[in-house]
């Protein structure tokens, strides 16, 4: 094998392998590390691995590494210990979810920033790290999403005021 063959194989499959690693680790740094580990494993087994089985073979390596990571992860242990039974959150008040789902100007990137920042309490840098964005980009997406939310909020409030002078704007969204 020449390194050029190996690099060509890497260039062909790196994208799929990294995306899968990111999906199962939710951590870009770790995903990069696991991706490089998977290709190192391929390098070690070059000659015995049927290349027609790629990228499946590489994805299996990634999955096994991710399973190991989560098994050892303190985050996961803390979560399981603190919340032994996870209950579904009742969706009795559709307000803001409905807005999040139905607002056509809200793209997945805005929504993800909004939910991770406001629902999960992640800092802008944490959101950026997860999504591969700079803190400034996250700030921009959040400001855009909040402007839309404000617009919806105001129009709901105005509508309610028209219907009932004592109406609360909050009841419209939450």
């Amino acid at each position: 094998m020449h390194m050029a063959d190996f690099e060509a194989t890497y260039r062909t499959h790196a994208d799929a392998v990294f995306r899968y690693a990111l999906r199962v680790t939710a951590n870009r740094e770790l995903a990069e590390d696991i991706t490089s580990e998977a290709f190192l494993e391929l390098y070690r087994n070059w000659g015995s691995v049927d290349l027609s089985r790629l990228p499946g073979w590489l994805l299996t390596v990634v999955k096994n590494r991710a399973v190991d990571y989560w098994r050892k992860s303190a985050v996961e242990r803390r979560y399981v210990e603190s919340t032994p039974v996870v209950e579904a959150t009742p969706a009795s008040e559709p307000g803001i979810e409905q807005w999040l789902l139905e607002e056509p100007a809200l793209k997945p990137i805005h929504r993800a920033c909004l939910v991770m920042h406001f629902v999960h309490g992640m800092s802008r840098s944490e959101v950026g790290e997860r999504l591969g964005l700079s803190e400034t980009q996250v700030k921009g997406h959040l400001q855009y999403a909040l402007r839309l939310l404000r617009k919806a909020w105001t129009s709901v409030g105005d509508g309610e005021r028209q219907n009932s002078e004592s109406g609360s704007r909050r009841t419209g969204l939450l």
Partner: peptide
């Protein structure tokens, strides 16, 4: 919002569960 969804797991844990890599 935060109070209402306070029991939601961390996004990374959710994704790991959806990828079947958690115990």
């Amino acid at each position: 919002l935060r109070q209402r969804f306070s029991r939601c797991p961390d996004p990374s844990v959710i994704q790991a569960a959806m990828g079947f890599v958690l115990p």
